[in-house]
Design a protein around this nucleic acid. Structure first.
Length: 227
DNA sequence: ACCCAGGTGGCCC
DNA sequence: GGGCCACATGGG
C-alpha cells in the first residue's frame, strides 16, 4: 500500500484528528517535551497543573519558576527530574532570545530546526513536532508508531530518522496541514490497535496491526496467532 | 508481575 | 550506522 493510499484510508475511517491539542505555541513546546515516552493523558494532566500555576503562559514565567514546582507539575509524565530541568532550560532559551516565539518561527526552516536540536532534551521528533504544530512548518514527524507502521503496512524499512522523514514528506502534498493530519492519524492507528490485542478485527490497515514488539513476537512463531 | 507509552543523550563497537 | 542503558510515572 502506498503512503498516499494509507493516508486516504485512515482519514476516511478515523476522520480529522485536529492536532496538536494545545491552546498556544508555547504549550506545544511544553507538550512536545513532556510527551516523550509517555501517554498523552499524562501530558494533559501535567499541562493542566502548570496552567493552574500560570506557568504555561510564556517562556519567562516558566523559566523563572522554582525547579521543584515544575517537577511536581510534571511528575505524572515520568522522567520528571529530566523533563523539569529541560523545560526550564528551554523556557529560559526562548525567554532570552524569542520571548513571544513569533520571531523564532519566522526563521528559515533549516535554521530553526538546527536551533531546536541544539537544546537539551529536544531530539528530531520533538523538534519536528514543534516546527510542524507550533510553527506550521512543512516537516513530517517520525515517531515510533510511524516507523512500525511503515515497516509492516508499507513493508518499507528506513535506516534512520532523516530517511523516513524525507520519504513521508514526498509521499503526500508538501503542506503542514496534510503532514500534521497524516502523522496524527498514524498515531491514532497505533493507539487504537494492538496495544492490548495482538490481532484486531476491523482495522482499516490490517498489516499495521501487528506492530508492537510483543505482537511481533507473538506473530512470528512462538505464539499461535489467535483469532 | 510484567509490558508499554506520541524520546533523548551518553557511551560503545 | 546500530545496540544498550538510564531516565520514572501511570495504565493495561
Amino acid at each position: 500500500m502506498s503512503p498516499k493510499k494509507l493516508y486516504a484510508t485512515l482519514l476516511s475511517s478515523f476522520g480529522p484528528q485536529h492536532w496538536w491539542p494545545a491552546e498556544t505555541r508555547f504549550e506545544v513546546v511544553i507538550g512536545a517535551i513532556l510527551a516523550q515516552q509517555t501517554a498523552w493523558k499524562n501530558v494533559e494532566n501535567a499541562i493542566a497543573r502548570l496552567k493552574q500555576k500560570n506557568l504555561a503562559d510564556n517562556p519567562e514565567t516558566l523559566a523563572a519558576a522554582p525547579l521543584n514546582t515544575i517537577r511536581s507539575c510534571v511528575k505524572c509524565t515520568g522522567f520528571y527530574r529530566q523533563k523539569a530541568a529541560r523545560l526550564e532550560k528551554t523556557a529560559a532559551y526562548f525567554a532570552e532570545n524569542y520571548p513571544t516565539l513569533d520571531e523564532f518561527f519566522e526563521k528559515p526552516l533549516a535554521a530553526a530546526r538546527e536551533e531546536l536540536l541544539s537544546l537539551d532534551g529536544v531530539g528530531p521528533e520533538t523538534a519536528d513536532s514543534i516546527l510542524l504544530y507550533a510553527g506550521g512548518k512543512p516537516v513530517f514527524v517520525i515517531d515510533a508508531y510511524t516507523r512500525r507502521i511503515m515497516d509492516r503496512a508499507l513493508e518499507k524499512r528506513f535506516t534512520g530518522y532523516e530517511e523516513a522523514r524525507v520519504f513521508l514528506e514526498k509521499s503526500v502534498p508538501c503542506n503542514a496541514g496534510v503532514f500534521g493530519e497524516f502523522h496524527a492519524l498514524l498515531v491514532e492507528l497505533g493507539k487504537r490497535h494492538c496495544r492490548t490485542r495482538p490481532v484486531c478485527g476491523g482495522c482499516p490497515v490490517e498489516k499495521a496491526c501487528l506492530h508492537s514488539r510483543r505482537n511481533q513476537r507473538l506473530a512470528s512463531g512462538a505464539g499461535a496467532p489467535r483469532q
